[in-house]
Amino acid sequence: MDQRKRKRMISNRESARRSRMRKQKHSDDLMAQVPQLRVENHQIITSINITTQHYLNIEAANSVLRAQMRELSHRLHSLNEILNYLNTSNSVFETENPQNNTDSFMNPRNFLYLNQPIMASATCFSADLHC
């Protein structure tokens, strides 16, 4: 029985030694991966930063376009109101005073300033602001 215990003890020691060697090899393999993973991590962080910057630039441009759209819509609405008023006023002026219609203040030909370019300001960058 003493021989059996001794044989078993030697076998356990050999098994423990092999286990320690496997553990050391696994640790060495993981340590070898560290530099490669750091490079990959740096590349991913750089890519995320570039993508975030592109997103912020596009979001800023989008905000400007939204502000311009709101301003142009408001101006279009105002111009439509003026045209509606002129259309209703012209019919009134024609019935009241047909000879002075060409000199009338409300004559559409007198509104040449309405033919100015429509420019929206780029000062509004937030979608929450009403420019």
Rank of each mutant, 00 (worst) to 15 (best):
I58Y: 04
T51H: 06
S27K: 14
L112A: 15
R18K: 15
M21Q: 15
T123R: 11
M1S: 13
A60L: 12
I118L: 09
M69R: 13
A16K: 07
P35Y: 02
L72Y: 05
D29C: 10
R70C: 01
K5D: 12
N84G: 09
H26D: 15
A16G: 04
T88A: 05
R8M: 12
Q24W: 10
L114E: 00
K23F: 13
Q116T: 12
E94C: 02
R8N: 12
E94W: 03
M1T: 15
A127M: 10
L79W: 09
E59Y: 06
T123S: 09
M9R: 09
S47D: 01
P108A: 00
I48Y: 00
I48M: 01
D29T: 12
K23V: 11
H54P: 00
A16Y: 07
N101G: 11
N84Q: 09
Q36M: 05
H77G: 15
S104P: 00
T51K: 08
I58P: 03
Q33D: 12
V92S: 01
V92W: 00
N80H: 05
I58V: 05
R75F: 06
R6A: 12
D103C: 06
H130K: 05
H77W: 12
T88Y: 04
N90A: 04
A120L: 00
M21P: 00
T88V: 06
A127S: 13
S11K: 03
M69Y: 14
S27G: 12
L72I: 06
A127H: 14
T123K: 11
L112T: 14
H54G: 04
H130W: 01
I118G: 05
L76T: 04
M1N: 15
D29Q: 13
R20F: 13
S15Y: 07
K7S: 11
L129M: 07
M119P: 01
L72A: 08
T52F: 14
R75V: 05
L86A: 05
K25N: 10
S91K: 02
K25R: 10
S19W: 09
R17W: 05
K25A: 08
S78R: 05
E40G: 03
L83D: 06
H42G: 04
M106D: 07
P117M: 10
V64P: 00
F105K: 10
I48R: 04
P98I: 14
C124T: 00
R38I: 07
H26L: 13
A127W: 11
N90Q: 04
P98D: 07
M21W: 11
A32N: 15
N90L: 03
A120T: 02
T51A: 09
L30C: 13
A61I: 09
